[in-house]
């Protein structure tokens, strides 16, 4: 397993910092969007797109690529930032987020955005799609992997558990789900809205290999993806413990920053805080 040496970690930390800047500036420009759950997923997305996934920005539809599905579609700003960092489109285009005529819709569209593998926005649908491409990869005899990012609130959707049974039943070890476990959803703390109980026990009971990590620790994130690749005969879920609004003091762990964009003054303060 690769241990990151200092320069690579620096690079990844730079990716993360820029992604956070883009999330904040683009939602500010748009005047709407979901910064909280985008900021919590920055490190996971950076490691996936910069270090783990086999994708080709020159050929987004490459038929041997690894797939990524943003099941929590409202975190579109972090996906767009990751795609721009990886070179799927120019970073300046990020500033068109949510504007009429832009390729960057409020929720991801596979139709118009290079590198977006599936349209999403109605929660709960991504894991089923991941199972589908994973089954197709098995039929084709390719080494392709399918990654799907789920919100913790999102897994209140029943389809997630239908799909979790499918992944385990078909022994889809090329499926890797990540739960952005930031413990907040639109109406409040997940455990107050509708508790998830023991998340790890739930996934394990469904036949999954579960790994728990600090979802902001680049090395742990990288290692968990590498470990998942070695697990055979069952899918892996990475329970990434994260902080909603991570990186901006007044947004961290605040329910109110789920679906509200920073104003100009807040943006200025937030950008200064980013390390």
């Amino acid at each position: 397993m690769v241990q990151f040496v200092e320069p690579q970690l620096h690079e990844l930390a730079d990716n993360c910092k820029r992604m956070r800047q883009w999330i904040l500036t683009t939602t500010n420009k748009a005047g709407s969007g979901h910064p909280g759950g985008s900021l919590s997923a920055v490190e996971v997305m950076a490691v996936l797109y910069m270090k783990i996934m086999r994708v080709d920005p020159e050929n987004p539809d490459w038929d041997r690529r690894d797939y990524f599905f943003l099941s929590k579609g409202h975190a579109a700003p972090v996906l767009y930032a990751a795609l721009a960092e990886r070179g799927f489109f120019p970073a300046e285009e990020l500033m068109t987020l949510r504007q009429a005529g832009s390729r960057l819709h409020g929720h991801p569209s596979s139709e118009c955005t290079p590198g977006v593998d599936i349209s999403s926005g109605s929660l709960g649908q991504g894991l089923s799609i991941a199972n589908g491409v994973a089954l197709a990869a098995r039929l084709k005899g390719t080494e392709q992997r399918a990654y799907v990012l789920l919100g913790d609130g999102e897994i209140q959707e029943g389809q997630v558990w239908e799909a979790a049974m499918t992944s385990a039943h078909y022994k889809l070890d090329n499926v890797c789900a990540i739960v952005d476990y930031n413990r907040l959803q639109l109406d409040g703390p997940v455990d107050e809205v509708k508790t998830l109980g023991s998340l790890r026990a739930k996934w394990e009971a469904f036949g999954w290999n579960a790994i728990e990590i600090d979802g902001h620790h680049l090395q742990e994130i990288y290692n968990s993806f590498e470990k998942a690749k070695e697990v055979k005969g069952r899918p892996t879920v990475i329970l990434a413990h994260t902080v909603k609004g991570k990186g901006v003091s007044f947004m961290e762990n605040q329910v109110g920053w789920h679906g509200v964009a920073p104003n100009d003054e807040q943006l200025e303060i937030a950008l200064k805080e980013l390390r």
Binding site: D63, G132, L135, A136, K140, T166
Partner: peptide, 16 residues
């Protein structure tokens, strides 16, 4: 599981 049925189909179609 009709919802999962349709989603899995979508994934297979995405892969050609």
């Amino acid at each position: 599981a009709e919802a999962d049925l349709v989603g899995t189909g979508a994934g297979l179609a995405l892969a050609g």
